[in-house]
Amino acid sequence: MRRILVVIVVALLAGGCGSTPRARGTPHAAKDATLVLDFTPNAVHAGIYSAVARGYDRDEGIRLHVIAPPASSTSLALLQAGRADFAILDIHDLAIADERGEGVVGIMALVQRPLAAVIAAPQIHNPRELQGHTVGVTGVPSDEAALSSIVAGAGGDPRRVNTVTIGFDAVAALLSRRVAAATAFWSDEGVTLAHRRPGFHVFRVDEYGAPSYPELLLCAKRSTFQAQPSVARAVVRALVRGYGLTVRDPARSETDLETKAPGLDGDLLDAKLRAVMPAFPAPDGTFGELNSVRLRAWARWEAAVGIVRKPPVLPKLFDPSFLPGAGVRS
């Protein structure tokens, strides 16, 4: 599922991914900006595609080019290599990159809660019951941490759970009964499994001891937005409008996504969008919020479960100044 034709990426990147001015018949020419996704286009990206389809990017004086990575692990690499100006990153990948001193910063949240979960076979009714069974993990460091947190949060012993690396094939591994459970996103694989074969149990990480945190973030290199703050602000404002449309009119936003990223299963996309849509707005109805209280709790948890060695320094890792109204809540 997490595959995309590399030729599409190459063609779009070759088409220009800096902030080069491009005339559009207005007094101020639009600036090009490239955004690489974390994953194959899916429901969580609906607001991004609506921002482009509805011209919100051009309203802000930019022309946003959205590309999907050949693999989920390459988004950060494309950002670091200067082949993309912005990237959607998992918050755990951002924390690890920060620990390596890579100078990448989160400037907007796409969702306001974790998407990570353990999805278990119908006969597994509680994470404690995974003791003695085999759980599939993708191989990324945060998977083991999420699994351990969920099992421990249910009163089990994570050391008694066996793991096997299955990459991003959770759906196939579970349907074939290769594993008793797998780490995945409840908003994606969880919905797919419910659509394909009802009865699987979804154990969300924030329901078993983890704090609520924004799983996916719009990120940029600090050097990029310091050199072009107006471009970063324009991208954020366009996406805030895009996600606003998604929540107000999901059918239109779904059409935007299907038009810009053809080949998606319409029925499945509709189910995924309905599942994830409540995670887009903050409690006060705003979009993109980086809540300092939640982020402090996440930083402590991130270190406690071993994803990073010590809690990330929030002012170094996040910059909410590009959000409308500063976008910060304490």
Rank of each mutant, 00 (worst) to 15 (best):
I4T: 11
L5Y: 10
T20P: 02
P21A: 00
G25S: 05
T26E: 15
P27Y: 08
V36F: 02
L37R: 02
V44K: 12
A46H: 03
A51H: 04
A53K: 10
A53P: 04
Y56K: 01
D59T: 14
G61W: 02
R63F: 09
H65Y: 05
I67T: 09
P69A: 12
P70V: 03
A71I: 11
L79T: 11
Q80S: 08
Q80C: 00
D85W: 01
A87T: 04
I88Q: 08
D93E: 15
L94N: 01
L94Q: 05
R100K: 15
V111L: 11
Q112I: 04
I119S: 02
P122W: 03
Q123G: 09
Q131Y: 09
Q131F: 02
G132L: 13
T134L: 00
V135N: 04
G136K: 07
V137E: 13
V140K: 12
S149F: 00
S149N: 01
G153H: 02
G153Y: 00
A154P: 13
R159E: 15
V161F: 03
N162Q: 15
G167P: 10
D169R: 08
V171G: 00
R178G: 09
A182T: 00
V191G: 03
V191L: 12
L193H: 13
V202A: 04
R204L: 06
E207F: 07
Y208S: 05
P214D: 06
L218Y: 03
R222L: 11
P229C: 06
S230L: 12
A232S: 05
A234H: 06
V236E: 00
V240G: 10
R241N: 09
G244P: 00
G244T: 00
G244D: 11
V247F: 06
V247M: 08
V247P: 11
P250Q: 07
S253D: 12
E254Y: 03
L257S: 07
P262H: 07
M277N: 04
F280G: 06
D284E: 09
T286W: 00
E289T: 14
S292Q: 14
A297G: 11
I307K: 09
R309S: 15
K310C: 10
P320Q: 03
F322K: 03
R329M: 06
